[in-house]
């Protein structure tokens, strides 16, 4: 029997996140732990927490797991693992160890699928230099998988949401559109080529992009996942008390993403993300509706968005290209805080 994980879910990957508006309300109800060694917590909506061990070492700690984004169990494992370690890269860290988190419907799927998911996760972790040293599993439907990851970072070299500075250029390292393509695939609208490209994007580790960030001493970055480009940029603008302008025409897209959105293929997550962001966002009146919705498309294992001082942007771009991230480009800029946090232009 050919196993098709996609048959089991309505929204996979990071589209399955709790709506950001709701999450923000929930997090407000929780006390922030107080400890001088906590360098980054969820106050700034960062990708991971950071805990200082001593003056030379801090731990980056993060977890991510989600329902299937593709049919093949092995590929699902790879994508989930690449997505989980990404938060460590986004914070300037080096991922070191991880635990598997698995929810698996033991009565509905053969054990072979279980093994394949874990094997995909293990192979991707090993590509990232991460040792998986344990895990936990629960019988649950539909399946969900991901990692809890610990990474190392120097306490003075942490990259956060709060590091955007006026004058910075914003550079994105992967094309957008995984949410749209996956929704299109479920409805039989996306081409095989687009699905293959989307899967390759999701499987690509953010390791090489993170190396370039470290080389240039970048202090502000995030990875683009469930809240979409605009949602993550908004979180960054708020955490840094700046405003951000995105030029949507400059944003690279996967395959036929635009034409799918033009047909109405707008996943529900995009509307949730739009609803969360719109009170803090300003849309230029002639902004193309499809590009606006693409800005809110939930990404799974998306690229790094880094804030780069304008005079280093050219060097960073050429290094990213040399590292194989050939679509990397400047897609916007950071200004002093204006009326709104986020400005979307054509």
């Amino acid at each position: 029997m050919k196993i098709d994980l996609l048959q089991m879910v309505e929204s996979g990957g990071c589209s399955a996140k709790i709506p950001p508006k709701q999450l923000e309300e929930i997090l407000k109800c929780l006390p922030l732990p107080e400890d001088p060694n906590i360098l980054v917590d969820f106050d700034t909506h960062d990708d991971a927490g950071v805990y200082k061990v001593n003056d030379d070492l801090a731990l980056v700690f993060t977890t991510d797991f989600f329902p299937p984004v593709c049919s093949d169990p092995y590929e699902f494992g790879q994508i989930a693992a690449a997505n989980s370690v990404s938060d460590v890269y986004a914070m300037g860290g080096t991922p070191v160890i991880a635990l598997n988190i698995m929810m698996f419907p033991a009565s509905k799927l053969p054990a072979e699928a279980y093994i394949d998911i874990l094997r995909g996760g293990a192979d991707m972790a090993s590509e990232a230099g991460v040792r998986i040293i344990g895990g936990h599993s629960i019988d649950d439907f539909p399946p969900k998988y991901g990692l809890a990851v610990v990474g190392y970072v120097h306490p003075r070299k942490i990259i956060t949401n709060a590091g955007a500075r006026p004058g910075d250029a914003l550079i994105l390292t992967k094309p957008l559109g995984t949410g749209v393509i996956l929704a299109g695939q479920r409805l039989g609208l996306a081409s095989e080529d687009d699905v293959v490209e989307a899967k390759a994007v999701m499987k690509l580790l953010n390791a090489s992009g993170a190396e370039v960030m470290k080389k240039y001493g970048i202090i502000g970055a995030t990875d683009i996942t469930g809240f979409g480009l605009a949602g993550h940029v908004l979180k960054m603008a708020k955490a840094s008390s700046v405003s951000v302008t995105l030029n949507m025409k400059r944003v690279p897209l996967i395959g036929k993403t635009y034409s799918l959105v033009d047909q109405g293929c707008i996943p529900g997550a995009s509307f949730r993300n739009l609803e969360y962001a719109e009170k803090d966002a300003s849309f230029v009146p002639d902004l193309d509706y499809n590009l606006k919705m693409i800005a809110f498309d939930a990404q799974t294992s998306g690229g790094l968005l880094m804030c780069v001082p304008q005079n280093k942007a050219g060097d960073v771009i050429s290094d990213l290209h040399s590292a194989g991230l050939r679509i990397s480009s400047v897609i916007g800029s950071v200004t002093e805080k204006r009326e709104k946090f986020l400005y979307l232009y054509k």
């Binding site: 250029a169 030029n247 009146p285 002639d286 942007a313 050429s318 400047v330 897609i331 800029s333």
Partner: peptide, 22 residues
């Protein structure tokens, strides 16, 4: 009907509009 109002207001900013290629 395309709403033309306020387009100028949006564009009259000192935001750098250029983008760097590769």
């Amino acid at each position: 009907e395309t709403t033309q109002q306020r387009t100028e207001e949006y564009c009259n900013t000192d935001i750098p509009h250029f983008s760097q290629g590769n």
